[in-house]
């Protein structure tokens, strides 16, 4: 029982830390740095959606970047081409991303391991191909320009706090989701699918729901990204987006949820601040991955947690 209490305490600490750190940032940083923090929050949510599958259900997805991007496309298309309201657009974006996730899930529940990786990769590539080729709708390579944010969240500070609120709410939902009996079943499937099946659990149905739900979270992140970036092109749905989300989850620590914030912060800050000093920032990124994999295979937060437990 005491371990459950400390787990809840730990998560509460995570929430408080995210709230305090990200909540006070706008008071001390410039508007550009705030936009970086904003991006970190959005990508942390994407990384978390991947982390649910990778860390709790043992399935590594390379298709969530595409789900994220679908939502971005829908929001931008709805507001700029169709001329609809941004709020409805966001709702639609999330719904469409969730629906597509359900279609992906119908295929993906049949496989596990490396085949799951390959299948989600292929599905993601299909989305990318469609966005690139369906020029009349997506604008092809050139993408679509947005029309800006609604007045209520037009100022960068207002939008930043709106993002923070949404991301915190989603984090809470994800946290509840993985700690529910449903989440426990997912962990059971991760450890031994055949045993769970012989115990009478519908593993396929569980995986289907889990995949679709993570698609919902990726969709929310994508809708926020549409409001943030005000532009979408095939590079938003391409494979590197999925890979980046996965790397963020890995660097932070698979199966830690809050590690996604650390991973997103590490990668995005590296991209933006190191690149100001050297054009070879990708090498720095590569070295960082290798060092993480050798010295902290559980990711930054995972390793910290291990050290704390060992100390007790």
């Amino acid at each position: 029982m005491s371990s459950t209490v400390s787990a809840i305490q730990r998560s509460a600490l995570g929430f408080v830390l995210v709230l305090v750190i990200f909540g006070t940032l706008p008071l001390v940083v410039s508007s550009y740095q705030m936009s970086i923090a904003n991006e970190i929050l959005i990508f942390a949510l994407l990384a978390m959606s991947i982390d649910v599958l990778a860390g709790y259900a043992g399935r590594t997805s390379l298709g969530h970047g595409a789900l994220f991007g679908i939502s971005t496309y829908v929001v931008i298309y709805w507001t700029s081409v169709y001329g609809g309201s941004a709020w409805v657009g966001c709702l639609l974006g999330v719904v469409v991303a969730t629906l597509v996730a359900a279609i992906f899930a119908a295929f993906a529940v049949r496989v596990s391991g490396v085949y799951f990786l390959l299948l989600t990769l292929a599905l993601g590539m299909i989305v990318w191909g469609v966005c690139l080729r369906w020029t009349s709708i997506t604008g092809g390579e050139n993408g679509i320009r947005g029309v800006g944010r609604p007045d209520l969240i037009a100022s960068p500070t207002a939008f930043y706090y709106a993002t923070l609120a949404v991301v915190l709410l989603m984090t809470f939902l994800i946290w509840r989701f993985v700690r529910s009996p449903f989440g426990l079943t997912l962990r059971g499937i991760r450890d031994s699918e055949s045993r769970m099946r012989s115990l009478g659990y519908g593993t396929s149905a569980h995986m289907f729901v889990a995949f679709t739900v993570t698609g919902f979270f990726a969709g929310v992140a994508g809708a926020l990204y549409a409001l943030f970036n005000n532009f979408v092109s095939p590079s938003t749905v391409q494979l590197s987006q999925s890979v980046e989300g996965l790397l963020m989850a890995i660097i932070g620590g698979i199966g830690t949820l809050f590690g996604s914030f650390i991973g997103a912060a590490a990668i995005i800050m590296l991209e933006n601040f190191v690149s100001a000093y050297t054009a070879r920032w990708q090498m720095v990124l590569g070295v960082m991955f290798i060092v993480t994999m050798i010295f902290a295979p559980q990711g930054i937060l995972g390793t910290l947690r291990m050290l704390l437990i060992r100390k007790r």
Binding site: S30, S31, Y32, Q33, S35, E39, E141, N142, G143, N229, F231, S233, S235, T236, E271, N272, A276
Partner: peptide, 28 residues
Amino acid sequence: NPDTALQKARRLVEQAKVDFLFGNLLAN
């Protein structure tokens, strides 16, 4: 990459306070 270009444009305008922007090669 358009997303990177956007990030860099933001940095140049908001952080480096440039008077104007120049360049880029690919249409997107």
